[in-house]
């Protein structure tokens, strides 16, 4: 076993605390049975979880966010994967410029995207509409799909598709046989990523939606008017779901890497 520098270990522990403290502090609060957000809580109970799951406003926001995130993720994954295939394997000036364009929403501040989408939506009369939000969220999820699926696509041997063709498969069948299966893990994990890009997005939602709240909007609005530990319960729920999904995405990615290495 290698000798470890104790200072390095201490540094490591501090970094982990720094990263996780804000997430973990809400856990005890969510289990408090007091009426206010306070830390540390004096009594424990499931009161705020019950409150969250029984409040129709919270539930409506949660399901709306899940719906929008699912739609945005499917749209971003579909469009993103087709873009990757359209861009092709070889880098050229055009494909470089187009990639930059697809990736732009990840670099441009969300508030600017929000402003643009808002003006456009109002002009077209489609603001305060879930479908518009799905499209806007798909746009900001797209860069992750293009980058993740793109890097997986370039690792797939292009002769696989040629082999399928010469053995009698048409172009679509060759793609489905040779390219799609090794690409699937990357597509799924990009989809999960795009899902959460949408699920926790606040700014665009605030600009675009008014009557129909998403979950982050509900949390935001709740915090502005009253402070109670429901938010902590929601946050813990949020963290658990996110962690689970990200773990699945990471496992898929690793499996894909293992397969490609073979």
């Amino acid at each position: 076993m290698q000798d470890r520098n104790p200072l390095l270990t201490l540094f490591y522990v501090l970094v982990v605390i720094f990263l996780f403290f804000p997430i973990l502090i809400v856990v005890p609060i969510s289990f408090s049975s007091g009426r206010f957000l306070s830390f540390p809580p004096e009594e424990f109970g499931l009161r705020w979880y019950i409150n969250y799951f029984s409040d129709p406003v919270w539930m409506a926001a949660t399901f709306r966010s899940l719906r929008v995130a699912l739609g945005a993720s499917i749209l971003a994954t579909f469009v993103g994967t087709l873009s990757v295939i359209g861009l092709g394997r070889k880098r050229s000036k055009t494909s470089g410029a187009l990639t930059a364009l697809f990736v732009a929403p990840a670099i441009v501040p969300n508030i600017i995207v929000a402003l643009g989408v808002f003006i456009l939506a109002v002009r077209m009369g489609v603001s305060d509409n879930e479908l518009t939000l799905v499209c806007a969220h798909a746009a900001i999820g797209l860069p992750f799909v293009v980058l993740m699926v793109g890097s997986a696509y370039r690792q797939i041997d292009p002769t696989l598709e040629r082999a399928a063709r010469i053995m009698g498969a048409g172009p679509l069948r060759a793609f489905l046989t040779a390219t799609l299966p090794p690409l699937t893990p990357a597509i799924l994990s990009a989809g999960i990523f795009a899902f959460f890009v949408s699920f926790d997005e606040l700014i665009i939602s605030l600009f675009l939606m008014s009557s129909a709240e998403t979950l982050p909007m509900r949390i935001w609005n709740d915090l502005r008017f009253e402070i109670n530990p429901t938010i902590a319960a929601v946050s813990v729920f949020f963290v658990v779901v996110t962690t689970l999904a990200m773990t699945i995405a990471e496992l898929l990615r690793r499996r894909a890497e293992k397969n490609n290495a073979a």
Binding site: L160, R162, I166, G168, A169, A262
Partner: peptide, 17 residues
Amino acid sequence: PEHRNVGMVFQNFALFP
């Protein structure tokens, strides 16, 4: 290619993994 009825062996095998 799929209508040429030709067999081909590739340098890098090109087996479906």
